[in-house]
Simulated scan of single mutants.
Amino acid sequence: MLDVKRKIHPLLSEHRATIDRQRWTFVPAAETREILAGLAVSQAAMDEIGVLSDLLRSDPTLPFRAASNGRFCTDFGTRQAYRTEDQLFVLTAEEDFHRFDSGQLRVFDPLEARLCANAAFQGLLTINAFILATLKPRHRPLLDYTSDQWITTVFDLRTITTPELIGEPALEGVHSDGVDLSMTTFLSRNNMRRDSGITDVHEMAQVNGVRWDEIDPQYRVGTAQHWETLDILIVVDHEKKHSVSPLWAEDPTQRATRDVLTFFSRKPTVEGHVSYDHDSRLPHESLPCQVDVSIVRDPWCT
């Protein structure tokens, strides 16, 4: 657990104000490091998080990706964020996710215990909680917006490009992630060309499923690129869509990789939601992780 002698950096408050105003924000790595330092995270932990994706194995549906995930519950009643038991994952076209595996129940490898124990990872959970603490999103159907709890699915994702295969960070084109808040944190890159992995943020009027290079410019509201370890993009997911360009190899004869953590947060489901049977809030018995997030409720933070 993180040291209790922590403080919220003014930079994070500024980014939350930007989210309130424009419904998305990009936090450069240098600012993220300042914010995490205020949460008593060491530079060593920040550096370590950038190299923890090397043990990832295959993705259940995408041949150019390696992936793991874990579910977390941020409970503002108890002021704790804790890891829940592993569960199936599903996203549907009705949630603005259009891909060949939309609606499929998918099983991912569990997040590594070493990642969850990393203080920078726990700091990212705290940053996520700070945004959620005052977030008032446009409501999605069949989610319980009266609850003090938020459900966050964390993915550790490696996109891979080889001479035979182009890796797509967002094969689905323009999309939303079926949640209330999406927070993507860059971990590392190898042999990644400078025009790779560029994210465009779009108004909801942009048609879903459109390729990254076929979007309508009138609906693009911003552009960002994850390049340095701990660059963060935060999007209010049901109010802005996004798309991402492919991973191009600087040396096309060699393998290229792009590693990110994604934090997909929403309110708990109610009966009738496609994920209702896969939305347990029971703690993980063999891989516990618990973070005190009471700091985000301090009066001077709101």
Rank of each mutant, 00 (worst) to 15 (best):
A37S: 14
Q80T: 11
T152R: 10
R99Q: 08
G103N: 07
A37M: 02
E48I: 02
R79K: 13
K136W: 03
E112C: 02
T78Q: 13
L36A: 00
R114W: 02
L111A: 01
H139M: 09
G38W: 03
A66H: 13
T126H: 08
A129L: 09
A67Q: 10
E48A: 12
G50T: 00
G38Q: 09
Q87S: 14
T92W: 01
G77H: 11
Q87L: 12
L142Q: 11
L36S: 00
S68N: 12
T126S: 11
D109N: 03
N118H: 14
T152D: 05
A113V: 09
T78C: 09
T152Q: 05
G38D: 08
T92N: 04
S102P: 07
T61M: 12
L143P: 01
S58A: 08
Q80N: 10
V154K: 09
Q43T: 14
S42P: 00
F89W: 12
T61E: 13
L115G: 01
Q43S: 09
Q149T: 13
A117S: 15
D101K: 03
D148E: 15
L88M: 13
Q87F: 10
P137H: 04
V41A: 09
A67H: 08
E85C: 07
A117K: 15
H98S: 07
E95A: 14
R57I: 02
L143W: 04
L125S: 03
R99L: 06
R71W: 05
F97T: 10
A133Y: 05
I49G: 03
Y82K: 05
E48F: 02
V154N: 02
T134G: 11
Q43D: 11
I127T: 06
L105C: 04
Q80E: 05
D59M: 03
R99S: 11
L115M: 14
R138D: 07
C73P: 05
D54E: 12
F121P: 00
T61D: 06
L56M: 07
E95H: 07
I131T: 11
Y145D: 06
A40N: 13
N128Y: 08
L88R: 06
I131E: 04
I49Y: 02
I35N: 03
E112N: 12
L132E: 00
F97C: 13
A44L: 12
E94M: 15
G123C: 06
A67T: 14
I131R: 04
G123Q: 07
G123D: 09
A44I: 05
F100T: 14
M46F: 10
W150A: 04
A119Q: 15
R83M: 06
G50N: 06
D86L: 06
A133F: 08
T146L: 04
N118R: 11
P137R: 04
Q80G: 02
S102A: 15
S147T: 03
R79L: 13
A66L: 11
V154L: 05
I49V: 12
A67R: 13
P63A: 09
P141K: 04
P141S: 08
E95F: 01
Q43P: 10
T74P: 01
R140F: 00
F155K: 06
P141C: 06
T134D: 11
N128Q: 15
F64V: 00
D101S: 11
R71P: 01
Y82Q: 10
P141Q: 10
D86W: 03
A45C: 03
L56A: 01
A44N: 06
T146F: 06
N128H: 10
I49N: 01
D75W: 04
A44Y: 05
A67N: 05
V90T: 15
